Amino acid sequence: MSTVPGHVLTDPAWVAARIDAMSRAWGTDVPRVAGTLWWCMAASTLVEQIAVAYAAGTPAPVAALGDFDCVVRPDGGVEHAQFHRVPVDATGRSVRSDVGGETGAAAADEVAAALRDTLTAVISQVAAVSGAGVPALWAVVSDAIGNRALDAGSPDAAVRLAADVGPRLPTPRFVTVEGRAFVRRASCCLVYEAPGREMCTSCPKRLPAERTELLAAAARCRY
């Protein structure tokens, strides 16, 4: 593992090297596939702590490029983000982004604006390096937020966070199968295009009936 400052996520040479490492790890020579896989992991890392904070009603970290470091695996994947600050009020106390009033609104605005700016900057680099489409990469973020909020027990938190980030981010969607909630995905990670891999259970490219059947089996396995 290595630790790098968040701003390297907008360095095209650094991003290209990480996507190349991901290509080797997954055995694919298609940059679009490796880039999408890399972004699925990186996006989930960037939004996880913010989505969990929205779900829990605790102060959310600021994801400005200068306010976090990334822990990177040998295969190029971003394993973890180490955020350095959360919004504070005039007394220096950390502020929840889901409380009412001007202070809470300002905290939500700061968190959302920082995340929006970081996502916009990094997505543009991933798209340029890999050839993946910008809307497809934003859809990956939507699904990542949905999954992390769902893991935290609050699908509503995903919808609130996406709304705060802004219109480029599709609203996370959910579906309940056999009593269990799943993200109704807007994105495809393209893993099935890598050698020896199959579509994910919830892949939006599956036939709807097939996807529902697989999700039902996954829901039953949970209990």
Rank of each mutant, 00 (worst) to 15 (best):
A152Y: 14
D151A: 15
L137C: 06
S94L: 09
T103G: 07
W138H: 15
A60K: 03
L119F: 08
V72A: 11
R148E: 13
G146K: 09
V88E: 10
L115V: 05
G77V: 03
G101W: 08
S97N: 03
T91V: 15
L137S: 13
V86C: 14
P87C: 04
V134Q: 13
L137F: 10
G76C: 03
T58E: 08
V111D: 03
Q125Y: 13
S142E: 07
A121L: 06
V126H: 01
V62N: 01
V134G: 09
T91R: 11
R96F: 05
D75H: 00
D143P: 08
P74R: 02
D98E: 04
H84L: 11
H84I: 12
D151N: 15
F68L: 07
G92Q: 05
G100P: 07
E102T: 08
F83T: 10
P59F: 09
F68I: 00
V129F: 14
P135F: 14
P135N: 14
D151E: 10
A121Y: 02
V111P: 15
A144C: 02
L137G: 01
V111Q: 05
L115A: 03
V129S: 06
A107E: 01
E79C: 12
V71S: 14
S124Y: 06
A114K: 02
T118Y: 01
Q82E: 15
A81G: 12
A63W: 06
A144F: 07
V99E: 10
V122I: 11
T103K: 15
G76S: 06
H80K: 14
S124C: 07
V129Y: 04
H80P: 00
I145E: 06
V126C: 07
L115D: 06
A106D: 00
V88D: 10
P61S: 14
C70H: 06
F83N: 07
V140Y: 02
E102I: 02
A107M: 00
T120Y: 11
A132P: 09
S124N: 10
S97W: 05
P135R: 12
A108T: 03
A81N: 12
G104H: 01
A81M: 14
V126L: 08
P135Y: 14
A121W: 08
G146T: 13
G153K: 14
G76M: 03
S97H: 08
V71K: 10
A113Q: 10
G133I: 06
D69Q: 04
T120P: 05
G66S: 15
L65W: 05
V71W: 11
A152F: 13
V141P: 04
V62D: 02
D67L: 01
A114E: 00
H80A: 02
R85Q: 03
F83W: 11
G101D: 07
A144G: 04
R96E: 00
L150H: 09
P135C: 14
A63N: 02
A136H: 15
T91M: 11
Q82A: 15
L115N: 08
T103Q: 08
A121H: 06
V88Y: 02
R93F: 09
D89N: 15
V134N: 11
V78M: 00
D109Q: 09
S97Q: 11
A144N: 01
T58C: 08
V141Y: 02
